[in-house]
């Protein structure tokens, strides 16, 4: 049905790198999914159906990994043999930790009603901008194979993404 490529990028015929053509990813994903989706094997033997489920799950996983900027960053590091599960003390600058702490505190101190929405929106924008900036820097470090730096930035991206999710959650709790 489908031959499994060495990595998710070549599976979707994309160049390996942080900057990614999302349209092409979407297009390739759907094209491949059209071939392997279990709906196409509704009347087939169990074994073939099982294979379709596996391949279709694999494609979904590959697609979701590349689609998410954070997961894509982690995947690229892992492709380079970088262990992203263990966080070394030296990966986290005190300034970064301090800033995250400050942002989290300001988030926690906001009132839990609609009066906080404007501030939340600001925080959201600021975090988005910061994320975008750090993503660009990550892409640069990765391109020049500065893996230590890239790994450091990856952890910062994790912080920022988590913070963004918490801001959204706080917004959801209000609206």
């Amino acid at each position: 049905m489908l031959s499994i490529a060495d990595n998710y990028f070549s599976q979707f015929e994309l160049p390996v790198g942080y900057d990614i053509d999302l349209d092409r990813l979407n297009g390739q994903f759907r094209e491949l999914q059209t071939i392997v989706h279990p709906d196409r094997y509704a009347a087939a033997e169990d074994e073939q159906r099982l294979q379709a489920i596996k391949l279709s799950s694999y494609l979904n996983e590959a697609y979701e990994t590349l689609k998410s900027p954070l997961r894509r960053a982690g995947y690229l590091l892992q492709m380079q043999g970088v262990d992203i599960e263990q966080v070394e003390q030296s990966d986290l600058d005190p300034e970064l930790l301090f800033e995250q702490l400050r942002l989290r505190e300001s988030l926690a101190e906001l009132p839990k009603d609609e009066s906080a929405l404007e501030r939340l929106e600001e925080l959201h924008h600021a975090t988005s901008a910061k994320l975008a900036q750090r993503q660009r820097e990550f892409a640069d470090f990765l391109a020049e194979a500065s893996l230590g730096q890239a790994r450091k930035l990856f952890h910062e991206l994790q912080f920022l993404t988590k913070l963004q999710a918490e801001i959204e959650k706080a917004e959801d709790a209000i609206v």
């Binding site: 799950s57 979904n60 697609y63």
Partner: peptide, 8 residues
């Protein structure tokens, strides 16, 4: 809202 089939 994760696409299915999926294995995690």
């Amino acid at each position: 809202n994760t696409s299915i089939p999926v294995s995690k």
